[in-house]
Computed example of a mutant assay.
Amino acid sequence: MFEYVLKLAIMLPAIGLLAWGCLKLAKKMQDRVGAPVQGKSARIIETTMLSPSLKLAVIEFHGREILVSASRTGLTRLAEAPARASAEGLDR
């Protein structure tokens, strides 16, 4: 019985630390992936879910903002406009 309690006292904090470490690593990797990268010409400005299978997205590409709909069948360009100055300050 004592061995069981000793194993539990050792393994429970070890599993907790392992889970905490995995969460910290996932957060660090997510921040690295979401960071803006120099040299990329396309950037997602904003997205909106319309339904489970349909999403609207505003993509900045070479100084233009392009509104696209994304569905299971693919992307469709809906509109295009010059990039707004306020969109330059957004970091997504």
Rank of each mutant, 00 (worst) to 15 (best):
M11T: 14
S53M: 00
G63P: 04
A42M: 07
M11N: 15
C22I: 11
V33Q: 12
S53L: 06
K55A: 00
T47L: 07
L90V: 15
S71G: 14
A85S: 11
G74M: 00
P52H: 12
G89T: 14
L18D: 15
V58Y: 10
A42N: 05
K40I: 09
W20R: 01
M11C: 10
E80L: 01
S69I: 04
A83H: 03
I45E: 02
S51I: 05
R77K: 10
I15V: 13
K24C: 08
G16H: 04
R77W: 10
L67E: 05
L25P: 01
G34L: 06
V37Q: 12
L23T: 07
E60V: 11
E65D: 06
L90M: 02
A79R: 14
G16E: 01
A87N: 09
A57Y: 05
G21T: 00
K24N: 09
R64K: 15
A83V: 15
R64H: 11
I44T: 13
C22V: 13
R72G: 04
P82M: 03
L54D: 13
G21H: 08
T47V: 14
A35I: 03
T48C: 10
L75Q: 01
L23P: 04
R32G: 03
A42Q: 08
E80P: 01
V68R: 07
P52T: 15
I45L: 02
A19E: 03
L56F: 10
S53A: 03
L56H: 12
I10A: 06
A19P: 11
A35L: 12
I66G: 06
E88H: 06
P82H: 01
C22A: 15
L67V: 04
T73A: 07
L23S: 11
R77G: 07
A57K: 09
V33K: 15
I44M: 05
L12T: 13
L25E: 14
T47W: 00
I15P: 11
S71Q: 00
K40Q: 12
Q38V: 03
L50M: 12
R77T: 12
A14H: 00
L90H: 04
K40A: 06
I45P: 08
S69E: 04
I44V: 15
V37S: 04
H62M: 14
A42Y: 02
V68I: 07
L75W: 14
T76K: 08
K24Q: 15
P52I: 09
A70K: 06
A19W: 05
I45G: 04
E65V: 09
E65P: 01
A87L: 00
T73M: 06
E46A: 04
G16K: 02
A35S: 09
K40W: 06
A35Q: 13
S86P: 06
K27H: 10
G16R: 06
M49E: 15
A9K: 08
H62Y: 11
W20M: 00
L12Q: 10
D91N: 14
I66W: 03
L90S: 06
H62C: 09
S69T: 09
